[in-house]
Design a protein around this nucleic acid. Structure first.
Lengths: 200, 200
DNA sequence: TGTCATACCGAACAGCGTTCGTTATGCAAG
DNA sequence: CTTGCATAACGAACGCTGTTCGGTATGACA
């Protein structure tokens, strides 16, 4: 092969690499995933990957963004289902939790700590903004419908923090074994919603 | 040197290694911390560490347990301060958050994901149980005092999830920049406490 | 004084991310 | 049709990692 890959070829190639990387990250974990392994599966030499990604971190970042988008797809689809606002909110919450435990590696990739703001790809920033927006919009709808009251953006972050915290505590094996995950989850939603309800 | 280190010598040695490891983890991060670097700082050969820790994971686990204990010390001390129950609860919450951001590496070590229950050291299990207990006891006190109502263990996990989630979202740089951390934090506590309050 | 258990070390292995100079391919110019 | 060149992909190497292994030399005991 030789002269000048077209932009689409490059994009396709990056996507192919990212797909393999994503599966490796998901099945073998972060540290056990090697560029050598990914290259081997593609039938390539390790060095060849550097034509498409500057380094392992950049590949990781691209994979992160892809996972982020898949995550947003899921929760947006759940919220777009027919039903009243309560049902759709419950569907969104369930989709969130389901994604976390069906694709734990992807979820952990998305919410991994030590992500210095500095080296976030624009595509990653966009993917983050999208999911944050999705998680706020449904609260806006609930406030608009008079089901709860308060600043939607603030409330969105409150619900999000609580559910995310529960999920990662569960993933870290920190929850008391005798307390079922869903029991805590429903209590969180109940208390927050009661706390944010009008009057009372 | 030679014959038969006493148990105390071994324990002291392990503690010395762990102290260096902890500082390395804290200042250089998890992946950038190497057994070679730790050994070098101790003036040892890398292989010598294996006399005291079976491998890097075991050293990490010991460091994790130590961080856990330091964490429990802090929040227990805060809750033991004089004052009424509201004040002491607030002090505990502040101590929790302060620890997280003053020692982010330690906090992340404690709550790192992918901790298969299987290979948890007994000392790590004990350290976990202790902190979980501390976070439950103060809720028990508040329920006993009639400030809130519900199952203390369940409520403890609810508050814990929410605050932990907020902290790790902040650490991952996921929060909307325009929303101050403390604003969200106070709203979480306000809503949960309102939701768990008696009556209406 | 001599023996032996053993704390510690030096050297090596396999695997990692990454870099470098080389190879070989296929389009454009002559 | 041939030639030259730009470059996608490679092979080999570097320095790093965790870990293992065989050897060394030390200090307590017989």
């Amino acid at each position: 092969m030789a002269l000048l890959l077209t932009d689409t070829q490059v994009r396709d190639c990056r996507a192919r690499i990212r797909a393999v990387a994503e599966r490796h990250f998901a099945t073998r974990g972060l540290t056990a995933t090697s560029l050598r392994g990914i290259a081997a599966e593609l039938g390539w030499a390790p060095a060849s990957l550097y034509r498409y990604f500057h380094n392992k971190d950049e590949l990781l970042s691209a994979t992160r963004a892809a996972a982020h988008d898949r995550f947003s797809d899921r929760i947006e689809a759940a919220y777009a289902q027919p039903g009243d606002l309560w049902e759709r909110s419950r569907a969104l919450g369930s989709a969130y939790v389901d994604f976390a435990f069906e694709e734990p590696a992807a979820y952990q990739l998305i919410f991994a700590l030590e992500q210095p703001d500095g080296d976030k790809t624009p595509e990653l920033r966009a993917a983050e903004e999208r999911s944050r927006r999705t998680l706020t919009v449904y609260i806006e709808d609930m406030v608009a419908a008079g089901l709860i009251e308060g600043d939607p953006e603030l409330l969105g972050h409150v619900y999000w923090s609580a559910i995310h915290g529960l999920i990662v505590l569960q993933m870290a094996g920190k929850l008391k074994p005798s307390l079922p995950f869903d029991t805590i989850r429903h209590e969180i939603i109940r208390l927050l919603t009661r706390g944010a309800s009008k009057g009372g």
